[in-house]
Amino acid sequence: MAAMASRIRLEDRECPLSTTVQHVGEWWTLLILHDAFDGYTRFDQFQESLGISSSMLTTRLKTLVTDGLLERRPYQTNPVRHEYVLTDLGRSLRPVIVALAAWGNSRLAPEERAMILIDADSGEEVDPAIVDAKTGHRLDDSDKYVFTAGPAAGPAMRDRYATRPPAPARDE
C-alpha cells in the first residue's frame, strides 16, 4: 500500500473517493473481487479465471486480506491450503462493482454485452441505478445532488466546497 498511498495528495487523505481508490483502485483488485462475488475462493480458481501470475495474485490477495476485504481461511490440512472469502466489508463493495459493470455495459449495444446482471428469480435483465435510500431518486442528476464538506472536513476540504463551480451543462 505504500506505493499507492504516495500518489494521494495530503488534502485528499480525508476524501472518501481517494481513500476508496487506495483500497480497490488497482486493476487486478477489482477483477479478483468480481471473481469473489461470483463464488471463487481458491487461489487456483482466481489464477485460472484471470490468467494472473502467481506472484501478482499472492500480492493482491495479501493486500485484500490486510485491508479486511477478504478473509484467509484454511480449507485443507495436509498440505495446508487456504481459501479467500469475502468479509462483510468486502461484500459491501458489491454495489460498486455492479455499478462499474453497468456503466461499462451502458456504453455497448445490448448484443455486444458479454456479461449482464439479471434477477436470479425471473431471469430478467436488470438496469442497476444508484439511488438515494430515503427518496428512491437516482443520484446521477448533478444539478440536484452535489458533494459538500462534511462534519469531519479539514481546511482543504472546506475550501474546496466553499465556492462551487457551476454544474456542467446537460445535453438534453
Score class of each variant (00 low, 15 high):
Glu14Ile: 03
Ile97Cys: 05
Pro74Lys: 15
Val126Tyr: 03
Glu83Thr: 03
Arg42Ser: 09
Ser49Tyr: 01
Arg94Val: 04
Thr148Met: 08
Pro110Tyr: 07
Leu93Gln: 05
Ala2Glu: 12
Pro128Thr: 06
Ile52Cys: 15
Gly90Gln: 05
Leu139Arg: 12
Thr148Ala: 14
Asn78Lys: 14
His137Trp: 02
Ala152Trp: 07
Gln47Arg: 14
Val21Arg: 03
Ala36Ile: 04
Ser92Phe: 04
Leu33Ala: 10
Pro168Phe: 05
Ile32Ala: 04
Gly150Lys: 05
Leu10Tyr: 00
Val146Lys: 09
Val24Gln: 05
Pro128Ile: 03
Asp159Ser: 15
Asp12Gly: 06
Trp103Tyr: 13
Arg13Lys: 09
Ala153Ser: 14
Ile8Leu: 15
Pro16Phe: 15
Trp103Thr: 11
His23Thr: 04
Tyr161Cys: 12
Tyr40Trp: 00
Ala5Thr: 01
Glu14Thr: 11
Leu108Thr: 01
Asp12Met: 06
His82Pro: 00
Leu70Glu: 05
Tyr145Lys: 08
Glu11Cys: 04
Met56Val: 09
Leu89Phe: 04
Asn78Ser: 15
Gly123Ile: 05
Ala5Pro: 00
Ser106Val: 00
Asp119His: 04
Gly25Val: 02
Glu172Asp: 14
Gln45Met: 07
Gly123Val: 09
Glu111Gln: 11
Arg72Asn: 05
Leu100Gly: 15
Thr41Ile: 02
Ala109Ile: 00
Arg170Asn: 08
Ile97His: 02
Tyr75Val: 12
Pro168Gln: 10
Arg170Tyr: 03
Trp28Lys: 05
Ile32Ser: 02
Asp127Pro: 00
Tyr145Asn: 10
Ser18Glu: 02
Pro165Arg: 15
Ala167Asn: 07
Arg9Tyr: 02
Leu117Tyr: 06
Val146Ser: 12
Gly136Phe: 03
